[in-house]
């Protein structure tokens, strides 16, 4: 080994270790982000020549009703998905006990998260199916007339979100179960001696200690809500009449499905979705950065 290598080893080594992963990540993730932004200024069918449009794609978006429907549904997704944070905490508190077989119970509660969203979507489609679906029958029994959730534009998005909440609550639950395991027992005992009970105990003693779990739970829930694609695609394919579209699905529909290959317009939708997500991502990164540099 040359003397030069020996002297510089410590300086070069990190870059040699980084190179394969970093190059792959740049090619497949970082550069495509900028390519999509650039592409959103063009008209392109995926094969022929690209035509420069400037801001035309974005101008079209502003007048596109389907875009607003998708955007509105994304907001509904985001808001309702947040239910999974308190719901997951509630189940975690319910299950944080030691009785026989508890380990098995906990993992069975976690089950929905392990299953593919495609399968979850099919399960809930069956659950909601008109005339014989369990849910349909329940509504019929309670109100006299059944509702075909996935065929009504008023309810369809809520029906899909309910399907998405099922695995998401399971995920949050497992985060909180681990968090509860690590709550300092002496603090809980001290608070108990001071007379803290129930909600007060939860709010002032337990929740502050669960902060890291809450942070991760919120991050994965926000990302999960905005990434929703599989369930919409499987359960309704965006319908009825496009009323259950979300941005991720609408983008795919414009760029790749039978509606034609409008790659530039699709890219513009993706840029909007990316911008929305960037608001949250920046927040998360900012917090992680602060934790990292404070240490």
């Amino acid at each position: 080994m040359s003397a030069n290598w020996k002297a510089n080893q410590r300086r070069l080594a990190p870059w040699l270790f980084l190179a394969p992963g970093l190059i792959m990540f740049l090619i497949y993730v970082i550069i495509p982000i900028f390519q999509s932004m650039w592409l959103s200024f063009y008209d392109w069918d995926g094969l022929g020549a690209k035509t420069w449009l400037g801001l035309e794609n974005y101008r079209e978006l502003v007048d596109d009703d389907a875009f607003y429907t998708s955007l509105k549904n994304n907001v509904i997704w985001l808001l309702l998905y947040m239910i999974s944070v308190p719901a997951g905490l509630l189940i975690a508190i319910f299950l944080n006990q030691t009785i026989g077989g508890m380990r098995l119970y906990k993992s069975l509660f976690f089950f929905p998260f392990v299953i593919s969203q495609v399968v979850v979507g099919l399960m809930f489609s069956w659950f909601y199916a008109p005339n014989f679906g369990l849910f349909y029958n329940l509504i019929e029994w309670a109100t006299g007339t059944g509702i075909a959730i996935l065929a009504e534009d008023k309810y369809v998005t809520y029906g899909i979100i309910a399907a998405g909440l099922w695995p998401q609550i399971a995920y949050v639950m497992i985060l909180y179960l681990t968090g509860l395991n690590n709550v300092a027992p002496d603090q809980v005992e001290a608070a108990r001696l001071d007379g803290a009970r129930g909600w007060k105990m939860l709010w002032y003693v337990i929740l502050p200690q669960l902060r890291p779990a809450t942070f991760i739970a919120v991050v994965v829930t926000v990302i999960g809500a905005l990434r929703s694609f599989d369930l919409v695609s499987i359960m309704t394919d965006g319908g009825p009449y496009g009323s259950s579209r979300v941005l991720s699905f609408y983008m795919y529909e414009q760029a790749l499905s039978e509606y034609g290959y409008r790659m530039g317009y699709g890219a513009a939708i993706a840029v909007v979705l990316f911008a929305i997500m960037m608001v949250f991502i920046s927040g998360f990164i900012w917090k992680m950065w602060r934790d990292e540099t404070e240490r």
């Binding site: 090619i27 497949y28 993730v29 550069i31 495509p32 592409l39 990434r227 979705l273 950065w289």
Partner: peptide, 25 residues
């Protein structure tokens, strides 16, 4: 830290912003 957070942030982006270029590649 910049390289590290690039990995972290890239991991959160929506798939759709990668879709057309990755399919093309």
């Amino acid at each position: 830290l910049i390289v590290f957070f690039m990995f972290v942030a890239g991991n959160f982006v929506p798939f759709q912003i990668l879709m057309v270029p990755v399919r093309d590649l």
